[in-house]
Design a protein around this nucleic acid. Structure first.
Ligand SMILES: [Zn+2]
Ligand SMILES: [Zn+2]
Ligand SMILES: [Zn+2]
Ligand SMILES: [Zn+2]
Lengths: 168, 168
DNA sequence: GTTCTATGGGTACAATATAACACTATTCGC
DNA sequence: GCGAATAGTGTTATATTGTACCCATAGAAC
C-alpha cells in the first residue's frame, strides 16, 4: 500500500487511470455505507462515467453515454438523482462555472471540501488542490464584513499543462 | 468629491441607494465610451434593473420586469445581449453558482476583477471585497501545478449580516 | 455613396434541471 | 413472518437558462 509518488494534480493524458478509478469507486462505496446508504448499480454506472477520466462532463453527456452503452433510454432525472447522491457523498463535485460534474480523485476527506478547482478551458480536465492559505484569507475577509460563510467555491479557469504545451 | 465613509460591503437594506445606482451608471457610461461602444437605451434599462439593488437577479427576472414596466414583450436574447455587453465592460458580473447577475457596485477597476464575491443564500444580496492574499495564494497554487490561470472565480455562499440577525 | 461595424428585433430552438406520481426494494421493529 | 418507514427508481411532463440564425437599421469610415 505504499505510494511511490504523490499523484500530480494534472496526471498525464496517457497515465494508467485504472487505479484512480478503482480508488474513487472504493471511496464512494465506503462513503455510502458510512451513511447507511448504498452505491446502487445506477449510481455506480453514473459514477463510472464521471470518474472514467479527470475531465468534467455534463449531465446529458453522461445520459447519452449510458444510453448508448446499455441500449436503454434513461430519463435525465435518473442521472440527476444519481448525481445528487454522489454529490451528497462528496465523491463527485459540480463545476459551477460550466454546469458540469467531475469525480473527486483527490483524497480530501481530511480538509473537508476545501480545495480549489483548476479547470482547463480547452480540454475540461480538472484538478483539485488543497490551498489552506487561500481559504483562510477568504474566511477572514468574509467574516470581517459580518458575513457568515457556509460554502466557499473557488474555480480557476485556464490552460492545463498539456494544453498550454500543445500548439493551438 | 470626498467620501465620508468607506461604503460597507453589505449596505443596510434601507440605505439610500440612489448614489450607488448613479455611480454605477456613470462607470458604465465611461467604460463603454472608453471602448468606442455605447451604453444604449436597452443596455441602460437592463443595467438599471440589475443595479437597482445589491442583489443578484436572473436574466428572465430582468426580462419580466422590463416587459412589465414597458408593456412590451422582449425576447430573452435581447436581455442576454445587453448582459453580455455589460459583462464585457465589467459593470455587471455573473454569479456562476446561481446563474444570476449582479451589478458591480465596488470600484474595483484598480484590482482588475480580483475580488471575492459574498452571496447571501437567503436574500441573494451580493458584496464584492478585495482579498489580495486569497488571489495570491490561488495563483501560486495553480502555477505550482503548471496550470496557467486566465480567470479566478471565488464565490462564498452564506448569510449576510441582515439575514443572520433576523429570525428564520 | 459604399462599406464596415455595432446594435438589436423576431423566431425558433438547444441545453440544463426539476416536479409529480407511481411503484419496487430494503430495513427495522415487533 | 408482517407491517411500517425509508431508500431508490421509472415515467411523463414541464421548468429554467441560454443560443442560432436571419435580417433590418444606425452610424462611422473611407
Ligand atoms: Zn487518472
Ligand atoms: Zn487541457
Ligand atoms: Zn446601494
Ligand atoms: Zn441576506
Amino acid at each position: 500500500m505504499r505510494r511511490t509518488q504523490p499523484a500530480p494534480a494534472f496526471p498525464s493524458p496517457g497515465h494508467d487511470h485504472a487505479p484512480c478509478l478503482k480508488e474513487t469507486l472504493k471511496r464512494a462505496s465506503d462513503a455510502f455505507e458510512a451513511n447507511g446508504l448504498r452505491l446502487t448499480p445506477l449510481r455506480r454506472r453514473v459514477l463510472e462515467e464521471v470518474a472514467g477520466s479527470h475531465h468534467a462532463v455534463g449531465a446529458y453527456e453522461i445520459l447519452e453515454r449510458l444510453s448508448q452503452k446499455e441500449r436503454t433510454r434513461m430519463a435525465p432525472i435518473s442521472v440527476y438523482r444519481a448525481l445528487d447522491a454522489l454529490l451528497e457523498m462528496g465523491v463527485v463535485h459540480r463545476l459551477e462555472s460550466r454546469n458540469a460534474y467531475f469525480a473527486c480523485h483527490a483524497a480530501h476527506g481530511k480538509h473537508g471540501a476545501r480545495q480549489i478547482v483548476l479547470a482547463c478551458e480547452r480540454c475540461a480536465m480538472v484538478a483539485e488542490i488543497a490551498t489552506p492559505a487561500a481559504f483562510e484569507a477568504i474566511d477572514g475577509a468574509a467574516r470581517g464584513t459580518g458575513f457568515a460563510p457556509t460554502r466557499v467555491m473557488v474555480e480557476v479557469a485556464g490552460l492545463c499543462t498539456s494544453c498550454a504545451a500543445s500548439p493551438q
